[in-house]
Design a protein around this nucleic acid. Sequence first.
DNA 1: TAATCCCTATGATAATTGTCATGTTTTCCA
DNA 2: TGGAAAACATGACAATTATCATAGGGATTA
Lengths: 227, 227
Amino acid sequence: MTMSKCDQCIIKQFNSLRALEKDDLIRISGCKTSKYIKKGEVLFKEGDNINGVYCVKSGVCKMSKLSANGKDQIVKLVVRGDLIGQRSLVTDEVSNLTATAVNEMEVCFIPKNEVLHDLAKNASFSLDMLQDMGRELRVADNIIVDMAQKSVKRRLADVLTYLHETFDKDEEGYVSVVLSREDYASLVGTATESAIRILSQFKKEGLIATTGKHVKIVDFDGLRRVE
Amino acid sequence: MTMSKCDQCIIKQFNSLRALEKDDLIRISGCKTSKYIKKGEVLFKEGDNINGVYCVKSGVCKMSKLSANGKDQIVKLVVRGDLIGQRSLVTDEVSNLTATAVNEMEVCFIPKNEVLHDLAKNASFSLDMLQDMGRELRVADNIIVDMAQKSVKRRLADVLTYLHETFDKDEEGYVSVVLSREDYASLVGTATESAIRILSQFKKEGLIATTGKHVKIVDFDGLRRVE
DNA sequence: TAATCCCTATGATAATTGTCATGTTTTCCA
DNA sequence: TGGAAAACATGACAATTATCATAGGGATTA
């Protein structure tokens, strides 16, 4: 495995690491670990002490939390360019979420100690981090409202739109990232059967097309009008 | 109105302002505004450019967001010692939430410009802020899971427990903060009628006692067992 | 190739929750 | 203080969603 240099890595421009100085990035390169994670593999679990941040070079990862009733709830998807585990940098708390690869991923792990003093030293780094957390907080607020007020059908339509907007499509328009019906249910917060039923209904109504796990949106306006 | 000094204010120990130097606090004292807000009054609305932070000296405030279906969803309650509007310090975005006083409040408003350069200058201040946002993010994750997976009844039981743990009680054990049934509904994410019904049921089952808007928990274990 | 397992699919039914209608009580304020 | 408005309460019913049962399809493996 060729160990690429952080200062030359294009990924860093997507996250707070862009605010670091070249010198610091070179130093970080020296102590980071690079990992390939297979589909379905768990990066870390709820309760783990991760003590560092992961920088996602490629692939998609679901961040989930086990609820009291035993079901996993996906809180968010993490994509190329995102950092995972910022919270562990500033608090000593264990992770509140489990990170599972949705497809093959390549990530770099940067130990906490290595970045911690950059936060103290480099104001624009910590400001960037603050902005990032602020954005995450706003998104989380929106999800809370959606979960509380929108129907399952409406939430599923939102998820489909989000996936379409966030990920690449193939020549035919199918979204490159494939999720199981269980994943859809877990994103939306419903029973797997309900997710399956609604996807079938969307297909029947001509809003989406599916081949196996692959999904493509056919009628955007229709999806938007779903209640 | 006597304008108290920030450096002598006991409230600051509850939030990130504690990380500021005495000199900075004195400077801030000079430009802050102190306000009394009556019950039901709106501090700022979704979409407002608040350009500063509010420090809550007393009283309780609900932070809510209007959903597509026209209902308000309360995302969180803000209490004595909390800061409101940290996000506005680090981004130029408008507020995503509406802040409404639940009872009479006393708040101090500190203009953005006054604190902004402290973030750059004072690392322990920005670190404290990062920790605070990290905590908020974790709480938000938990709420998402609860909204998605728990029943309305269970969520209402959680809210009652939260209120009991967070606020003062009178000699009889009634929680000092009173909310309307509509507020309960809006916290839980349900219809007002449903909230009313479930509160009535809890009362009938001897889990809580109510006199008007005042609520007290009678049977903690019973409430905990609610599904 | 058959056996097995997991995912998808769908029906039947129950449970939860929302909506509408209506009446009562409380609060507020002119 | 009286009267209007808001908040609370409850019934009846509809809509949504979960649960349980069952079965087909596709991939994997012995």
